[in-house]
Design a protein around this nucleic acid. Sequence first.
DNA 1: GTGGTCTAGACCACT
DNA 2: GTGGTCTAGACCACA
Lengths: 226, 226, 226, 226
Amino acid sequence: MDPTGEVRTIGADHVALREQVLEELRRRIVDGDYAQGERLTETRLADDFGVSRNPVREALRVVEAEGFVHILPRRGAVVATLDETAVRDLFAVREQLETLAAGLAAERATQKDVDRLRRLLEDASAATDAKDFDRVAELNSAFHRAVIDVSGNRWLLSMSAAMYHHVHWVFRVGAAQRAPHSWEEHIRLVDTIAAGDREAATTAARLHVEAAAQAALNGRVQRPTA
Amino acid sequence: MDPTGEVRTIGADHVALREQVLEELRRRIVDGDYAQGERLTETRLADDFGVSRNPVREALRVVEAEGFVHILPRRGAVVATLDETAVRDLFAVREQLETLAAGLAAERATQKDVDRLRRLLEDASAATDAKDFDRVAELNSAFHRAVIDVSGNRWLLSMSAAMYHHVHWVFRVGAAQRAPHSWEEHIRLVDTIAAGDREAATTAARLHVEAAAQAALNGRVQRPTA
Amino acid sequence: MDPTGEVRTIGADHVALREQVLEELRRRIVDGDYAQGERLTETRLADDFGVSRNPVREALRVVEAEGFVHILPRRGAVVATLDETAVRDLFAVREQLETLAAGLAAERATQKDVDRLRRLLEDASAATDAKDFDRVAELNSAFHRAVIDVSGNRWLLSMSAAMYHHVHWVFRVGAAQRAPHSWEEHIRLVDTIAAGDREAATTAARLHVEAAAQAALNGRVQRPTA
Amino acid sequence: MDPTGEVRTIGADHVALREQVLEELRRRIVDGDYAQGERLTETRLADDFGVSRNPVREALRVVEAEGFVHILPRRGAVVATLDETAVRDLFAVREQLETLAAGLAAERATQKDVDRLRRLLEDASAATDAKDFDRVAELNSAFHRAVIDVSGNRWLLSMSAAMYHHVHWVFRVGAAQRAPHSWEEHIRLVDTIAAGDREAATTAARLHVEAAAQAALNGRVQRPTA
DNA sequence: GTGGTCTAGACCACT
DNA sequence: GTGGTCTAGACCACA
């Protein structure tokens, strides 16, 4: 997100409690610490995080808008459930957004952008060799965010942020075995972007998402809780 | 939206303050009551709405997530700016989501769904004749939401909610003259959905969004406010 | 400082901007990034840290109380100068405080306390072998703080905090060659504490500080700037 | 304190608001106007002193560093509590610093220094006869500061400033009956300093502090306030 | 609703 | 003009 690598000041780095709560809450859902269908009361979350209920409330509004929880009036929040329909719907949308991103990226990518993408591929390759699968998952998200970044479309950027968290979620609670395979598709995608071939990039993105959807829907483990 | 038509209880009808604040806040931005670039302090909003600052804070997190305002750490909220790039980006994403919705709707629409869509078209026609343009704009959003509803994809539904508010915004602060024209495209779209022709529906949606984008980008009035 | 190793919550970990500015400011002085005698304007520091001037002002009051800067009325802050007298004065005071601490520690140390001290000695030994001198300096401060912690005297604790930052400063801008030697003295000190011998502990502390003072005064590099 | 006796300009006399707030705040704590354990909100202090909250905040940082209040993150300031342990710890440290000061003073005192000390003793004697106990307490602090001043150790000077305010605090909230007695010990101390006898001065200082500690710990009135 | 925290801006004294 | 000082106002978090 900050490709310049410049030194950040204290002021810019300082994050509000609300923000930290938001990230930790999202992480716990995505990582399955808070299971699907689990009831999340404000008090419980406030205790878990060692803060008062106010920052918790604001964080809950955001994860609700992102679709991670449902908030029932006067009944509190419940972690959303990833049933097959939800996953299918998610990937259908993802395909549309990602093909658009790939096409735009192919038109706009500079050499620097391509270098950045290739570097992510190399890092992922190294992490895969080292069997550091958490890092691989992280780099997967980073790669797709980078493509969207290159596309230059700010709406894609803001809409896809929540989407990739969900994609991550699907694979965390599902199967991780697809990791090695997907990176070959990533390489093809970067090649088409580097070639500036919009058509080919769009197709490469479509194939990648369709393969990912296939994997997600087959490999899924049903674990709705409570 | 509530096809059951059953009587709702008081408890179910009650909407949280936060929710009312959210809708009114969004309305004021979309209607231009709060101009682009305008600074929105929590205290001012709390006064405007006659509530305490807490529900205002939570509503602000949501409109931020929806892209209507930017929140600067320790500096407060500022209404987002609809420059040409933002509009272009918005319509590029809209095209992807709406073509997907149209294709899915063509596959899944029942006779009842088609009737519902046609009824909206008729209402809009009547409203146009009556020169009730606010109602027309409202029906425009309702129509597109209905198509997405028919598509049955819940992700589309949740992602597009914020999107249509933005589309609405673009036309409010831009030009409204496109209204009569767009309904002819809507009729064609419903015809293709009724015919169950996915391909044709996708194309009809694309043409519609492209025409809308064209209109939005040409008719746009520059009114960024300090 | 937190020997229990328990998980800290977000709320407890969150630090005010003022606090971060304070630590970074102190670090930059101790590390020589801000040289002795250098003028520190509030604006410059605010820019350096990317914050407004208010947290900077509050941090300046603290480093002034700690003796790192002098604040001239309506003239701003200047980094203090470590001349020979200052170093001599510092070590004279340190001797008094550290001999008291050692004596009290000998009287009160539990087995757990002794284990903690020995662990620090081992860590330092490892860091010395690894030639990680920054870590050695850090462990040096940690060791002395631990002794004072064991002494149970809260006044010693609060007064010595600033003092050890100064000691660190003296060695950073002076010579680092004393590191290996001092740890032998530390070992002797821990042995006397473990034996519960107040007299011997007091003596060991005195000898250690005197040797450190000797080293500091001989090895000192004169670098007052501006 | 200003032996030159020259006329001071207006500029030099002007003290920053922050400084005045600091001294008044410290005075009110030491005099018990703000009781132990009392909560001190910024707004309240700002009102009490008729200034804005900013100089109050800066003063609070200083009294915190001096140990008069504890500042809880995001919760505000509370006046510290003088329980028996705190007093005992304080006097243990005081003994170390004061014996050092006495020894150094014995080595370095000029005739002028000795005269200055004797004059303070006479003033105190007069004030005691006049039963002006506030003045006596003030002269007590002035005497000890003068000894440290004569010692020439600037670290002692800066560290002991806060310490004597605390000593003063202990006697204000405790018992004042020790005043007459302590001056005899002061006289002996000055005699040893005048004689240039480091050993004897150190001993005299130790006996004095031990007697003071004894008095403080016995005469203490328990008044921790909610 | 109260209170801590930070920012922006105005004042004013020394260059 | 530069820079320390203070005030006003607003965000953020707690109860």
